[in-house]
Simulated assay, not measured.
Amino acid sequence: MNGGEGTSEAEGADPVPLSALQHAVYCLRQAALIHVERMWADNRFTAEGHVMHAVADKGGGRRVRGTRRVMALPLASRTLNLTGVSDVVEFIPDGEGETAFPVEFKRGKPKLHRADEVQLCAQALCLEEMTGRPVPEGALFYGETRRRVVVPFDDELRRLTRDTIAALREVLVSGRTPPPTTQRQRCRACSLLSLCRPDTFARPVRAWRRRMVEASLAEQVPS
């Protein structure tokens, strides 16, 4: 690994998990609930995601038309204090060696937010540090469309990725969970909704209990 002479941006702190960056972009509170408070709950979306990663998680490698393909490759960045495992990294011959091309498997289809892109870009930053060579782009493979979406790692995405890493690192180091997101539409697909916002479920239950009690009392009143 070519770690360079740089030092970690959070010397002595635990590494930031690459997988947590997707949570942090979607909702920083969700990331804290999972990685600080150690809460987790599966729903249909998370279960489908587990199935999508089943093959890549087995690891191993092979060569396809001259391209070396490595599954479940461990990644790390000392300067950004990141660690994790890629789904697939393709090493493409380019005349001067090989250029890394990370591929991340996702369930569903492309999203309006950039959570998937940030997670992929963070893998590229690790690969650049590990190989000492630029990683200009990668791809997201979505299970619903069965197609790759090529993601260029431009300055804007790299800046967003570094900002997300910094924000998540601050949460992990402080141990403080941020308040719920104001983007309530994202809560509907979140498997942690009942843990994050218990009042969302408590109010309907209380209302139902009150109706049942009132109905029971009404039946007891003599006509």
Rank of each mutant, 00 (worst) to 15 (best):
L193T: 12
E129T: 08
T131I: 05
H23F: 15
R133K: 14
A13C: 14
P204A: 09
V16R: 00
R68G: 13
L18V: 05
V213F: 10
R147F: 09
A124T: 05
I92A: 00
A215L: 05
T164E: 01
V89P: 00
A13S: 15
L172T: 01
V213Q: 10
E104Y: 09
V51P: 01
G143F: 05
H53W: 06
A20S: 13
R210I: 01
A122F: 10
V171I: 05
R197S: 07
E219Y: 00
R148S: 15
E156D: 13
V135K: 01
F153P: 05
E96W: 07
G59L: 11
A115C: 11
A47S: 13
D57C: 08
V213S: 08
G49N: 11
S191A: 14
V151D: 00
L125S: 02
I92M: 09
L120K: 07
S216M: 08
E128R: 04
E5M: 15
V205D: 04
L33Y: 01
R176V: 15
H113S: 10
E48A: 15
V150Y: 11
V88M: 14
I92V: 15
W208N: 03
V70K: 06
R114I: 14
L120C: 07
P222V: 07
M71E: 10
E128S: 02
A24L: 09
M212F: 03
A207M: 15
L73H: 12
V213R: 12
L80K: 02
P152W: 07
Y26I: 11
M39I: 03
V135Q: 01
E156L: 10
T182H: 13
V55Y: 09
T131P: 00
N2L: 14
R38N: 13
F141P: 02
G108C: 06
A115K: 13
A31G: 10
R210S: 13
P178Q: 13
A124W: 01
M71Y: 14
H113C: 08
I34H: 03
M212G: 01
A139R: 10
V88C: 13
V25K: 12
Q30F: 04
L168R: 03
P222K: 07
K109T: 11
R158T: 02
N81G: 06
